[in-house]
Amino acid sequence: MAARMIPGQTAEIAGPKKAFVIPKPEVAASLIKRAKRPLLVVGSKAVETQTMDGDLIDTAIRLHNTGRLQVVATAHIVGEFMKRGAEGIHSMQMMNLGDRLRDPDWRGLDGEGAYDLVAFAGTLYYLEWLVESGLKSFAQDLTTISLSRSYQPNANWSLGTMKADKWKEVIDVIVKSITEDN
C-alpha cells in the first residue's frame, strides 16, 4: 500500500507503543466488520477532505447506510449530515466522546452498550493524536483505527502516510469491502 510510518506532523512521534500500519485496505475493513460494536468518528475536517464519493461526509453516509457501524459527528458538523438527508447520525464533541470512550461503563451513543472498536476520520490531526493517546493509556480494551491520510501513532491501527489520491482509493476499497458484504 506504500504507506509510511511517519506522522502527519513532524514532532508528533509516540512512545514505545505505536500503531501498526494497516498493510492493505481489506484489513481495515475486516477489523471493522469483525467488531461487535464499531463506531466511526467523523471530525470537523470531513467537509474539506475529498473522497471518491465527494467528501468524507458523503463517504461516512455511505458507510452509515450499511448499518454495520454507528457514525458520530464531532464538533458542529452533524448539520452537514442532516443537510444531505442522513438520519441517525450521532453528534458528540471530541472531548466529550474521548472522555466517555475511556469509561468501560458507558453505554454508548445509543445506550445499547460499550463500543469495542472506534475508527477516526476527517479529524484535526493533532486532536485525534491526543484523544488516541488518552485511549491508548486509559481504554486499553478498546481498539482504535485511524483512517487518516497521515500515520497516527497512538491508534492501535493506522493507515499510514500516503498521497491524497492513493488515500482516496484506499478509503473507497474499505467502504466497498464493508458495503459488499452487507
Partner: peptide, 9 residues
C-alpha cells in the same frame, strides 16, 4: 481529568 498524554515517557 481526561488525560491525553503528550508524551508516553
Amino acid at each position: 481529568p481526561f488525560y491525553m498524554p503528550f508524551c508516553d515517557l
